[in-house]
Nucleic acid binder design. Structure first.
Lengths: 193, 193
DNA sequence: CATAAAACTTGTCCTATGGCAAGAAAACCT
DNA sequence: AGGTTTTCTTGCCATAGGACAAGTTTTATG
């Protein structure tokens, strides 16, 4: 088995030839983060992205009133990227922080560009990944309008149970668009049902 | 002046060579829609996208309770596309409908693929357009959590006054995540200030 | 371990927004 | 133009979720 390399889980043999894999893998660099390390800080421009091999990561913004609003959670197999900052080369409003110690695989912008423009399957997959992120965000966004907080919580519980189990209530609450107090009450309601 | 062609506003001379323009423009087809025509219907897979030359377009989803929720508005110069359905080749949950008579420029998926893989500037621009849509959606999404309905309305008023002026209150309201009744009250409050 | 710091729960009261219904105004036929 | 439909406004009351504050439990750290 040649599946030892973590990146085999990201770039699958069915989508990439052996030659392509040989071009791609060496460009990734393994990096570790310690709990609370920032992968990206507000005001800077993101110059790399990561695939998470192990650990938990959170992205968040600070709103005009100074509230911390979680925008996403990432764990094994997920891509950690601020699409906008990375591709538009803009300073970001977003922060990305390790919630636990993490091992990640990092690729920088220039290398990405080379691979993107030279390898068709790489750019197809990149596009698919971006569109999938768009899709999640859209779902989340519609859910904020259409569903009650409780339904959003139940859906998160079903779709990402590892987030519920590993992320503090206050981070989950802001992600769901409510306060930690309300989420605590929702939880109680749910457990009493 | 060789600016007569509408698409010159989309594919700018600074980003595309004359040869590229000659490859791209002929692939677009001018189409008209009459008020209330559907460009895309829930359950179908989007096989083309459009640039709006004139008119107003709205996209919306029907939630589980049957409520109509506007997800976006489009007018001159905007791209009308369901990114997810177009690129993932999935049946969509979204509807896209002309709010007025419209003239649009249409490109289909296969042609898009050819241009995307063959012309570097075309794929750079395509990626930028997608990322910009992602950015708007993210802003909208954070605003749903961080801001009061009134602030969202004021921001829309400032950033897209043509939407306020051309779209019915109930469509704007669902886009902002409130009822038309509440929006009517907000409007009153604002006008009384 | 001890003790400080987070994280979580719970109580009381408050506010933004919703639900419903009835008018008023505007837009759309034919 | 006259009537019909849609859009918008307004009133009354209901409710999801927020604000603040005080506990309690868990976790982190010297």
């Amino acid at each position: 088995m040649k599946d030892q390399h973590f990146l085999n889980n990201i770039f699958r043999a069915q989508d990439f030839s052996a030659e392509e894999i040989d071009l791609i893998f060496p460009e990734f660099k393994q990096v570790s983060f310690t709990k609370s390390d920032f992968l990206l800080q507000e005001g800077t421009t993101e110059n790399q992205y990561w695939f998470v091999e192990s650990g938990f990561v959170r992205s968040f913004v600070i709103d005009t009133e100074g509230n911390d609003i979680s925008t996403n959670f990432y764990s094994t197999g997920d891509i950690v990227i601020d699409w906008t900052s990375f591709f538009l080369r803009n300073p970001t409003r977003e922060n990305i922080q390790a919630l636990t110690d993490c091992i990640c695989w990092q690729l920088d912008f220039d290398t990405f560009q080379t691979l993107f423009h030279n390898i068709r399957s790489f750019r197809e997959q990149g596009r698919t990944t971006l569109v999938s992120s768009y899709f999640s965000l859209k779902q989340q966004s519609v859910s904020m309008i259409a569903d009650q907080a409780k339904d959003r919580y139940l859906r998160l519980m079903k779709e990402k149970p590892h987030v519920i189990q590993n992320v503090s209530l206050k981070h989950i609450a802001s992600f769901l668009g409510i306060t930690d107090t309300s989420l605590s009450r929702l939880r109680k309601e749910i457990s009493e049902e």
